[in-house]
Design a binder for these strands. Structure first.
Lengths: 141, 141
DNA sequence: AAACATTTGCAACTTAGTTGCAGATTTGTT
DNA sequence: AACAAATCTGCAACTAAGTTGCAAATGTTT
């Protein structure tokens, strides 16, 4: 109704992925298409009309979109914070971290030093940058 | 007892930061010194002797170490997952993300493309890499 | 060792995310 | 257009990470 093009786009994507075109999937896909940036469950819920979909439905819908590759998790973290000693780090940049997808351990790659990114667009002020790698550690590979 | 050098090192760091040398802070600092990589509260608890410190104590201890700059949070995420459409991303690399520390919004920096990291050490197999920037967005700057 | 400043543990709470199950949608078929 | 089969949805209840208030314990200074 409001955005026939977005609607059709969402439905086409779902068809192509061989998924049911349910209200939930179409609405959530439209929200993500319109936003064009990573959103949390909470943000998606508010943007699709508060109270329209259950939290569980949104998570499960996203999971189904994830499985067919239409969507991905922007940050690959576990839900727990991780702390480390602050030496070797400048205020703005820490060394890269490597997280093993098999054992879950994280290692510091202190040998690598990276150039600091330049401001990507006029108006963005960069304070810190972070590089993370994911894969298999020597023990698990 | 086991590691007098680590113990002294921890105490020296605390003194220099003008913090009380409490059992908790010394033990937790030693755990982090010994690990040399980012650990979650859960991991710290297990390594400092299960049941030795309350979860709350560990979080508050880390917060005090954080405030004086002895420790930092290795990953700067919020606790919520963020999802985005998977287009524009190769299997191994997504575009960098910029998160504003003021309004909390995350933006995609799709214009920037980065070279894929090479394996840092023999034995590490890199599957994905992720770059995140933190600072102020144009609206908040 | 007393007095003061911090820290600690407990209990209770919040928020993100998960699971099981019955009832509602969606799809393909007639 | 209507039915059956497959799939999705909401509810309620749960787990795990992290937070807050407060009284008791510990650390520091004199």
């Amino acid at each position: 109704m409001a955005k026939p093009n977005l609607d059709m786009q969402a439905r086409t994507m779902l068809k192509a992925a061989a998924l049911y075109c349910t209200q939930g999937r179409v609405a959530i896909l439209k929200v993500l298409l319109k936003a064009g940036r990573p959103l949390s469950q909470d943000q998606i819920a508010r943007r699709s009309g508060p109270g329209r979909f259950d939290k569980v439905t949104i998570y499960r819908t996203l999971e189904s979109l994830l499985k067919v590759g239409l969507v991905h998790k922007a940050f690959m973290d576990k839900r727990a914070w991780h702390f480390e000693l602050a030496h070797n780090c400048t205020e703005s940049q820490c060394h890269p971290h490597f997280t093993c997808t098999s054992c879950g351990d994280t290692h510091c790659l202190t040998e690598i030093s990276l150039p600091m990114a330049k401001s990507p667009h006029k108006g963005f002020v960069i304070h810190r940058q972070q590089v993370r790698l994911e894969g298999l550690c020597p023990a698990c590979a």
